[in-house]
Amino acid sequence: MTFPTVTAPSAIRASIALLAAFAFALSYDALRQMAVAIHIRGLLTYAFPLVIDGFIAIGVGALLMLRTAPLLSRVYVWALVGLATATSIWANALHAVRLNQQTRPGDGLRLDDVTVGALSAIAPLALAGAVHFYIVIRRQPAPHPQAADADKRHEAPDCRNGRDTVRPPTATEDHSDLFAALAPDSGDEVPAQSTPTPRRTGRPPNASLEELLTMARPVVERMGEVDRDAIAEEIRDVHGRKVSNQRLTKLTALLAEEHEAASASLLPSA
């Protein structure tokens, strides 16, 4: 019986998701009691925490998606996320301070109001941070299986002469001596046979920036926006070319400038 192998990235993602769930539960309990205190009735008290903390989680994801958006759009989203986070922190802190003030001196450990309020703010902050970590890790591209196999073949150890050496990657092997030894004399009447062309092996060469722009521009035109994930998928999966995260960041920045300039040119002049 075999068990599935748990890789480090998947374990980290699972831990972050668990942390976010616990942070949400802690903040949810405080915000629901605050909903009762502000006279929200019935089952709607269960929806009140979702509006605040759910907005924080969705807003963090929106910020990551709008990294290359115009500055005004990013400032608007930052303002909304900051307002929701500040509201959640304030409500959690106020809830903890009011309960602390109602605790009698002989009921066990008693902290001052400032300490209680500061500790209660950990839950909403941990929720926002966990969502941010999870999305960042999920957006990191996984290594292509064929590229990994090619690297292993190129770095296979050579144990001849009792030494471990690494063979450099070679595209072709020269078999000219072998073909010359097997070639017939000029007087023999043997039908001509074409020499097989050796195939190139290994990963495809890096694409230039102009080639990457040519591949990515149709994606921007099709989607109407600069989507980093869609562009990476178009280059790596559709065209089968390599692109590093650093070049992908530069590429999306150039495409964002082009897209913003094209959008500005379509606006009616004053």
Rank of each mutant, 00 (worst) to 15 (best):
M1W: 11
P4V: 14
P4R: 15
T5E: 12
V6W: 04
V6A: 15
V6F: 13
S10M: 10
I12C: 13
S15E: 10
L19V: 01
F22I: 15
A23K: 07
A23N: 07
A25H: 08
S27Y: 01
Y28P: 01
D29M: 15
A30S: 12
Q33L: 13
M34A: 15
G42A: 07
T45D: 03
T45L: 15
Y46K: 12
A47D: 08
F48S: 06
L50E: 08
L50K: 07
L50P: 01
V51F: 14
I52L: 12
G54M: 09
G54W: 05
F55S: 08
F55G: 05
A57W: 00
A57Q: 12
G59D: 02
G61E: 04
L63E: 14
L63Y: 08
T68H: 11
T68C: 10
A69E: 08
L71G: 12
S73R: 11
S73I: 09
Y76Q: 10
Y76D: 07
V77C: 12
V81R: 11
G82F: 05
L83S: 07
I89Y: 00
I89L: 13
A91P: 10
V97E: 09
V97F: 08
V97G: 02
Q102F: 07
T103I: 12
T103L: 14
D107E: 09
G108L: 10
L111R: 09
T115E: 03
V116D: 00
A118V: 03
L119V: 13
A121M: 14
L127T: 03
L127Q: 02
G129F: 07
A130Y: 00
F133E: 09
R138W: 01
P141W: 03
A142V: 11
P143F: 00
Q146W: 03
A147Q: 13
D149L: 12
D149T: 13
K152C: 07
H154L: 09
E155W: 09
A156D: 10
P157R: 04
P157L: 01
P157F: 04
C159S: 08
C159G: 11
P168M: 01
P169Q: 09
P169Y: 05
P169A: 06
E173H: 12
D174Q: 06
L182V: 13
L182H: 12
P184D: 02
P184K: 03
D185P: 15
G187Y: 01
D188P: 01
E189A: 12
P191Q: 13
S194K: 15
T195N: 02
T197W: 03
R200D: 03
R203L: 02
P204I: 00
A207E: 04
S208H: 14
L209N: 03
T214A: 11
V220Q: 01
E225H: 15
V226L: 11
D227W: 10
R228V: 01
D229Q: 14
A230C: 10
E233Y: 08
E233N: 08
I235E: 02
R236F: 00
R241D: 05
V243L: 14
S244V: 07
Q246M: 10
R247D: 04
R247L: 07
L248E: 07
T249K: 14
L251P: 04
T252A: 05
T252K: 09
A253W: 04
L254N: 11
L255T: 06
A256H: 01
A256D: 02
A261F: 06
A262K: 07
A264L: 14
A264F: 05
S265T: 05
L267F: 08
